[in-house]
Simulated assay, not measured.
Amino acid sequence: MLVNELVINAFKHAFNSKDSGILEVQLNKKQDQATLIISDNGPGLPDDFDARTDSLGSLLINTVLSQLEAEMDIEDKTGSTFTFHFPLN
Rank of each mutant, 00 (worst) to 15 (best):
M1D: 15
L2P: 07
V3I: 15
V3P: 02
N4Y: 14
E5F: 05
E5S: 11
L6V: 06
N9H: 14
N9A: 15
N9R: 12
A10W: 08
F11N: 02
F11Q: 06
F11V: 01
F15D: 10
F15E: 09
N16K: 15
S17G: 14
S17L: 12
K18N: 12
K18C: 13
D19E: 11
I22M: 14
L23V: 10
L23F: 12
V25M: 06
V25D: 10
Q26T: 13
L27N: 09
Q31L: 14
Q31T: 05
D32V: 01
D32N: 00
Q33V: 10
A34W: 03
T35P: 05
T35M: 05
L36K: 00
L36V: 00
L36W: 07
L36R: 05
L36Q: 05
I37A: 03
I37T: 12
I38K: 00
I38V: 13
I38W: 00
I38R: 00
I38H: 02
I38Y: 01
S39N: 11
N41R: 08
N41E: 12
P43A: 05
P43L: 08
G44T: 08
L45P: 05
P46N: 09
D47M: 09
D48K: 11
D48Q: 06
F49N: 03
D50H: 04
D50E: 05
R52S: 15
R52M: 15
R52V: 13
D54L: 14
D54Y: 09
D54Q: 15
L56V: 15
G57L: 14
S58H: 10
S58W: 08
S58N: 08
L60E: 02
L65Y: 12
S66Y: 14
Q67C: 11
Q67I: 13
L68H: 06
L68F: 07
L68G: 01
E69K: 12
E71P: 06
D73Y: 12
I74S: 09
D76W: 01
D76G: 00
D76Y: 04
K77R: 10
K77H: 14
T78W: 05
S80D: 03
T81G: 07
T81I: 07
F82T: 02
T83Y: 05
F84G: 00
F84D: 06
F84V: 02
H85L: 04
F86A: 03
P87Q: 11
L88G: 13
L88F: 03
L88E: 03
L88W: 08
N89K: 15
